Amino acid sequence: MADVPELLDANLHRVFNNRDADARRRVIDDIYTDDVTFTEPEGTVTGRAALDERAAALLGRTPATFVFVEDGPRYVGTSTGALPWRFGPPDAPVARGIDVITVLDGRISELLTVLASED
């Protein structure tokens, strides 16, 4: 079973930063519950396959030079965690946000992505 810091890392770097579909899916099967709920500005989906589709769609519509980079400290509780990030070319991000996870039995059961406001 993974702990909260490991799951934060895997979610950002090994799933949403991973353009290799097969490798990404193996990690998804490893770190999320079967019925994981993923909520982001485009809506909410449930299940590993749906989360994988969202990650693939995001990576598929952005240039290969776009990457997720941690953008601040990790916030870690016993069953929750949060990780701020930025996305885009390493020197010129086009988006910033934070991922908040809920962990159940060593796997992510809920993932909430909130984008930073431009205001």
Rank of each mutant, 00 (worst) to 15 (best):
91 D>G: 06
94 V>R: 11
72 G>C: 07
78 T>Y: 05
88 G>N: 00
93 P>G: 00
96 R>L: 14
98 I>Q: 12
76 V>R: 09
86 R>Y: 08
85 W>R: 01
74 R>L: 13
72 G>D: 14
69 V>G: 00
96 R>C: 10
73 P>M: 14
83 L>C: 08
75 Y>F: 06
83 L>V: 03
76 V>K: 10
91 D>A: 02
84 P>F: 15
85 W>G: 03
88 G>W: 03
76 V>A: 09
79 S>G: 12
89 P>C: 04
97 G>L: 04
69 V>E: 04
94 V>W: 05
94 V>Q: 01
72 G>S: 11
71 D>V: 06
79 S>Q: 13
79 S>C: 08
89 P>I: 13
77 G>L: 04
93 P>H: 05
86 R>P: 09
90 P>R: 05
96 R>N: 07
71 D>I: 10
92 A>K: 15
76 V>Y: 09
74 R>H: 13
97 G>D: 12
85 W>K: 05
75 Y>T: 14
88 G>Y: 00
95 A>N: 02
79 S>I: 02
98 I>T: 14
95 A>Q: 07
86 R>D: 02
90 P>L: 05
96 R>H: 15
80 T>R: 14
82 A>M: 15
71 D>Y: 01
72 G>W: 07
75 Y>R: 11
70 E>V: 07
93 P>D: 00
98 I>V: 15
68 F>V: 00
69 V>P: 00
96 R>M: 14
92 A>N: 12
78 T>L: 12
95 A>R: 03
92 A>P: 10
78 T>E: 13
88 G>V: 05
80 T>Q: 04
80 T>D: 06
90 P>H: 13
91 D>T: 08
93 P>V: 07
95 A>Y: 01
98 I>C: 09
79 S>V: 01
88 G>E: 00
84 P>W: 13
69 V>M: 04
68 F>I: 00
97 G>M: 10
71 D>A: 12
79 S>Y: 11
71 D>C: 10
93 P>Y: 01
85 W>D: 01
75 Y>Q: 13
70 E>G: 04
86 R>H: 07
88 G>S: 03
73 P>T: 12
90 P>F: 06
